[in-house]
Design a protein around this nucleic acid. Structure first.
Lengths: 199, 199
DNA sequence: CATAAGTTAGAACGATCGCTCTAAGTTAAC
DNA sequence: GTTAACTTAGAGCGATCGTTCTAACTTATG
């Protein structure tokens, strides 16, 4: 498959190995966001971070999966914090409105389209994220007196995620025509339920 | 740049040239949906449709732009019909829920990320689509007695588009966990405004 | 300092890429 | 049937790809 991963770690690596893996994944994310997933090649990643890819991380496929795993886990952690906050809708909305995160999500989705192992990994995290959102919404919707027959958690979850995604896409496309209006309306909507606490 | 495009059309092409362009673009779309945009290479497109790409259509960049233009124009036409129908929300929702169309949209968005000319073209169509939706919603929201202060057209447009996108993504990921519930809820929501006419 | 492990530079392999070009069909027009 | 335009097959160019491998460099450990 690839190089012998340091088998017997009898000795301390020159500089921390996890740190090197981290920097490789950082580089891959930057390239993916800046130039698209197809620009993530072994040579370019190595040029971006100055670390040997295959020696430390394995194949390109392994790298893509590592990116998914790290970004996915970070998303889950942030989401958990947001949903546990006193104004969960606002916190969640801010989290999901992150431009960089949405761009990365498009690229990961497209890249996973023809990398089966990666696709499975993406699906795993997407499922967990959705599960957390639905679970949190069970409580939130009741608290805010929202009709759960018309707006079940699964629908609201998909809507919020999709709305943020759609708005991020529009903004990237360079036409923020309706973007500011929609963004302001979303803020008002959240204020309507949670008060002006969020920014 | 590329081959001399038939400059003086003094004579009838062997078989209709527009037809050949169409079949090339068809092949590109199929490959893009099946294997991702990075799999759309000149050799693979030619193998898929048996027509010389550079001779009839120019460079790969020209091909991507042609795909955007055709798909974009088709989307605009379908959207115009949907919004003009007696139950515009239902028709719009059905249109935007198309699996194939959403997959293609992800790929086009990601591909445009590092093809400047293509990006501009995508933005043009996205802007027009959004403009049409907002214009139609100005009327629709009033007709259905929806509070336009809380739900302005720009917000509703982004939400519907994003919701469909999000649900398509979930389904592609292979976890339809909340998908059916969300889909059913959306249908109920539309019925609530437009009656059970749509399916 | 010596030594052995960790790490990298860079060549190399076969494959594929976008694109161009030439030679050979193939068909419409006369 | 000739001729000239339309079209394709296929070779070829320089570039880049993923991956492997070897030789050299660097550093932790003794």
């Amino acid at each position: 498959m690839h190089y012998d991963i340091p088998v017997p770690p009898t000795r301390q690596p020159r500089s921390a190995t996890p740190e090197k893996r981290r920097r490789i994944i950082d580089a891959a994310e930057r390239i993916m966001i800046r130039d698209g997933y197809a620009a993530v090649t072994s040579r370019r990643v190595e040029a971006e971070c100055g670390i040997k890819l295959h020696y430390h991380l394995g194949s390109l496929d392994d790298l893509f999966i590592a990116v998914v795993r790290r970004h996915g886990q970070a998303s889950i952690d942030l989401l958990a914090d947001a949903l546990a906050s006193p104004a969960p809708l606002g916190a969640w909305w801010r989290l999901v409105s992150d431009q960089r995160g949405n761009t990365l999500l498009v690229e990961l989705t497209a890249a996973a389209n023809h990398r089966p192992a990666m696709k499975a990994e993406v699906a795993t995290f997407a499922r967990e994220v959705r599960r957390m959102q639905v679970e949190a919404l069970e409580t939130i919707l009741d608290r805010y007196r929202i009709d759960r027959r018309l707006f079940p958690p699964a629908l609201v979850a998909a809507a919020v995620q999709g709305l943020a995604f759609s708005m991020a896409h529009d903004q990237v496309s360079g036409f923020a025509t309706g973007h500011e209006e929609a963004s302001a309306a979303m803020s008002r909507l959240i204020e309507h339920f949670e008060g002006p606490s969020h920014k």
